[in-house]
Design a protein around this nucleic acid. Structure first.
Lengths: 272, 272
DNA sequence: TGTGGTTATTTATCATACAAATAACCATTG
DNA sequence: CAATGGTTATTTGTATGATAAATAACCACA
């Protein structure tokens, strides 16, 4: 399974030779990021297409295509004679994969992640319940498989993260509700990014946590809807706890020695 | 407040003079609909850009821009030499306004709406609770204003629908959670469409239902978080009940007389 | 102080050409 | 025959330059 975050426009796979050849950056991403990070605020008009073209040394055509995708994500709207203006925030399609990613790039993650968990906490327990009620052989297989992968890789690493994610995704998919499965893919990308920037993932999984996952699986398998719901709630509450502990620790570490100003984006934790 | 569903590409405001001038249809919408309604299934490759261009009598440029927005919504992906292929469903950005709209156009609404309500039932009660916990003067004002508008227009009509919607949206916005506010705008468009195709809205609001709204408002205002949650749950459960009753009635009406095959899309109910 | 027409600017669309990627085909070789 | 490596045809990707449409800003006039 190709696992590539569905880039909107072509990006060179090689990181950046960037010599004579023109690196050819993803224009939509470039502009989108600048909107999400507040360089261009809502209401503001962006530079005109021709100017973008110059600054990326790209043709107006390419710029326009990028702008179109951004418009499709609700980030901006274009009108003749006036230009493209950044849309009000409430129009932004925050649930879009790319928008999400750009947002996370720009924003210190704490609120982002905790907002995300608030949503998960709302959705996933009930999803587990629905999954238990309407369980089918196929979905059970997928959930169980994910759990087994978690056990197999419980010592940590990328495989663990992937399995953990798939566990939750499978449950959402099991509800046979389009909205929920879409939320699943949302959670997918969000967590992927979160993992990249924060704790966990590589650290391995505590037995307790593993057991909670298993409890959810067993409850779903046996059709114990309410139990599935409860176990999932516990699981997420625990995650949220861990998360808060992590952030508190981080904050304290950043406050005390005063020379380690390397808060934000400590790319380090990514892998074992 | 301009209320215009954020069209992706230009559409002629006049319904369709369509004489000599070229009507100039929204290409993204045209292609997007065909994907959502299954004319082109996931995995299938679409006609090439040039062909689309011919069939819309538009330039390849215009087609490409449309395709770019669709790619941005996760509906398809393009590769040189092979063409644009419809993406697997799980990639589709179902939470996107336009995708939603196209989906609803194509799909008999019952499952759509009930799926939506499952999501609402998951999210909104907890949102009410959060709103109560973190209430501010400003958000209270908005919620209260919406409620008063509901009372004022309780006899029915478009204003009632709008007020009802705003009531729920305001609560979601009050949580100060980007994900939830985005979900709000999702719910907004979804319900807008639902109203267009189904029952309610014009029919006026039963006192009981109005009271439940008021109960939510009061609970939030007084900071009674759990009460707010409970009342919101009641409210949505009632809605879901009404909904099921409506669909059942409709189904039965369609089954019995056998000559009224006018199920699907009975545009009639829209207004009083 | 409006009011109606004119202009300048920017997006929207078009036509055409060429570059890049790659699936399909073919020939060569072990 | 199978594998390998190169060639070709096709389709998207990008570029360029021209024209159409929309409209904010300006101006002349009453």
């Amino acid at each position: 399974m190709q696992h590539k975050s569905a880039r909107t426009t072509a990006v060179r796979s090689k990181p950046a030779p960037a010599q004579g050849k023109r690196p050819r950056i993803d224009i939509a991403r470039a502009i989108g990021s600048r909107i999400l990070d507040g360089t261009y605020a809502p209401g503001e008009v962006l530079p005109k297409e021709a100017e973008w073209g110059r600054s990326f040394s790209a043709s107006r055509t390419a710029v326009r295509e990028a702008i179109k995708t951004l418009a499709g994500k609700g980030l901006l709207a274009s009108r003749p004679k006036v230009g493209s203006t950044v849309a009000p925030r409430h129009r932004w399609n925050m649930l879009d994969r790319d928008v999400l990613a750009w947002h996370l790039e720009a924003t210190p993650i704490e609120k982002f992640v905790s907002d995300l968990f608030v949503l998960r906490r709302m959705v996933e327990p009930m999803a587990a319940r629905l999954a238990a009620e309407g369980r089918s052989a196929e979905t059970l297989t997928r959930i169980a498989a994910a759990y087994e992968r978690m056990e197999r890789h419980r010592s940590g690493g990328h495989d663990l993260i992937a399995a953990d994610l798939d566990f939750h995704l499978a449950i959402l998919a099991a509800t046979d509700n389009h909205f929920l499965t879409s939320l699943g893919s949302l959670i997918h990308t969000s967590l992927e990014f979160s993992f990249k920037y924060t704790w966990q993932g590589a650290a391995g999984m505590k037995v307790e946590r593993l057991h909670r996952h298993r409890a959810v699986l067993l409850a779903i398998r046996s059709g114990a809807a309410r139990a599935a719901e409860r176990h999932m709630t516990d699981l997420l509450d625990q995650s949220l706890d861990d998360l808060h502990r992590f952030f508190t620790r981080q904050r304290r570490a950043a406050a005390a020695p005063a020379d380690k100003t390397m808060r934000q984006k400590s790319h380090v934790h990514t892998r074992p």
